[in-house]
Amino acid sequence: MSAASTTFAAQPRRGFRGFYVLMLAPALVLLLGLYVLPLFGVVLISVTEPRPGLGNYELLLTSASVQRALWTTGRIAVLTTLITLILGYIVAYAMRMASEGAQRWMLFCVLFPFWISVLVRSFAWITLLRSEGVLNTALRGTGLIEEPLMLVRNETGVLIGMVHAMLPYAILTLYANMRGIDLRLMTAARGLGAGPVAAFLRVFLPMTRPGILGATVLVFIISLGFYVTPAILGGGRTLMIAEYVALQINETLRWGLGTMLATTLGISVMGIMWLMSRVLDVKRLFGPA
């Protein structure tokens, strides 16, 4: 822990501290009582079924099937997160710079995907993007392309659908963070002779690091858990880990394997976050400016 945050943490008087500690209580009670506790017995299944021991965890090293699902999921989640963050940042930044009225309209558009349930959304993408779909028909009509573009029922389709679904999360998280930034700082930087790019890179961007971090974590983790959209838009050839787990729990009754994968996911995401906090120096980000 850095010296700055130690002094800072020690600073609040006893009474104040107690109050803030109390503020953690409701969430902790909810989480421990209604999540961790019920989950505990389930996690135990991973070391008791089909027989006691770490047999299920060995599958991580030995089963090509498990490894492939993990690899597919990781690859798609990383790609989705990258694309989403870049596109989302552009929109969030434009929103921050826009007038109040324009911001409302942009926000309205950003919320669009939320109101369309995942089944309808997938159907809409298929209708728009399939080889005889709206887009391909239009493009061929204008003579821009000869052969239809294969945009769905493959991994391109998976990415389109996932980026679309994840963008609102990224944009809103980034925007919420950018709202807290005083734009006069940019003006001041320009006044001190910084070019527009330098002002953005040196002043604005660093201040949005917590937003980027939050959006990355949110989008990446939600992406890991996606499967309806990938299954439909991927033409049934994309098997994500969340579907893999659901299959073991709901159909093949290999609960040991399913719960092992869930536990592994939980631990490895925690690990990734811990690493990120190391590399990105979260202390400084979350602590006093």
Partner: peptide, 15 residues
């Protein structure tokens, strides 16, 4: 055999 066969099938079409 359904349990193993289903897994193998999904693996085969997903790879």
């Amino acid at each position: 055999h359904a349990t193993n066969a289903l897994q193998q099938y999904l693996d085969a079409i997903s790879s």
